[in-house]
Nucleic acid binder design. Structure first.
Lengths: 185, 185
DNA sequence: ACAATAAAAGAACAGAATGTTCATTATCCT
DNA sequence: AGGATAATGAACATTCTGTTCTTTTATTGT
């Protein structure tokens, strides 16, 4: 990728993140992004078709990073998946807690797209790790549903955590999650 | 309230719902709502300040109805709260299944505001019914968190249900929910 | 039934955002 | 160094927004 492209792309992402921290997504205009990033109008449209397109790209970058990190972690110790603080979930929570930009975006007014990304990425992770286990424990319930429930519950818990001001430690929150999911995992 | 006002308000809601079924909220313009509702531009702005304002009003109307219905139902039989199909949750699911417009809105691209309404309304309902019970079962976990978890899980389940094409019966889904929440309720 | 009241309609407006085109300039890569 | 590629800036037609003002229509109380 051309150095200029990388530079522009970075400037756009940076401007967009900055604006997202200030106001809800719906109130941000392409014009503002252009002005903040200090690039030409044409340049923006050369990189992204629409504002939604940009948001999607940002989503993917952020969650790819954090979820891949969790995924790699879990492969290192297969036997510690379910015990705090080594569980994959606890690791995820710790990562999240130190990722300010991500927290900001998740707590923002217009976090719908982020949540979708987060949930679907997490669901994939859970499917890879726990599918067979879930199938055995509850043969009569669609595994699909259980995975959806777990990823949904986790993300909802994170939202509750963030809205409360991240008062609990990652370990404590992980403990809550263990209790909630006790019959499943 | 003036008969004309009621008529206009209804026309706006109707047009808006219709458009929401066709395209995501973000792609709907006030202009389109005006055209579809066949009202004057000024009239729209006399009723609602912005598009967001309208969405909020629609939300409240829809969920007030379904949640109040569930709330009343549960008061009739205090002993049947946890057993299918008389549980309050099952009743909610049955109501939902027959409410096409609501289903459409919940399954739409831009359902964030609806979900917020649904979740907060449901959380309130759960708090009223189960708060003390939850507190006794898990004294060490914030009740607030458990309520959030339950309402979140329920709504997520409904979303999964809808996206799958409402293939399961309300009773079946309620059964899933019981299993998921077994340790809590 | 008839004013007084209140709402809807319609036209017209300024301001702003969108998405595109095109010629020009700057930067990169080999 | 030179061809390729990206960024720029200006201009443009369209569309949407939110507001103002005047005219028309419907409702309510007496």
């Amino acid at each position: 990728m051309d150095r200029r492209q990388k530079k522009t792309r970075k400037a756009i992402f940076s401007a967009f993140s900055q604006l997202l921290a200030e106001k809800p997504y719906s109130r941000i205009t392409v014009q503002e992004i252009i002005d903040t990033a200090d690039i030409g109008r044409t340049t923006f449209y050369a990189h992204f078709e629409t504002k939604d397109d940009l948001l999607k790209a940002l989503c993917e970058e952020l969650f790819d990073h954090i979820l891949n990190s969790a995924s790699n972690h879990s492969e290192q110790g297969l036997y510690s998946l379910q015990t705090a603080p080594e569980s994959i979930f606890c690791h995820l929570l710790q990562h999240l807690k130190t990722n300010r930009p991500l927290i900001e975006l998740l707590s923002g007014e217009n976090n719908a797209l982020f949540l979708r990304c987060f949930k679907s990425g997490l669901a994939e992770l859970i499917r890879q790790r726990f599918e067979s286990q879930l199938q055995l424990t509850y043969p009569k319930i669609p595994t699909d549903f259980l995975i959806h429930h777990l990823s949904g519950s986790f993300v909802e818990m994170v939202l509750w955590w963030i809205h409360g001001g991240l008062k609990q430690s990652a370990e404590e929150l992980n403990h809550y999650f263990q209790i909630i999911c006790k019959p499943l995992l």
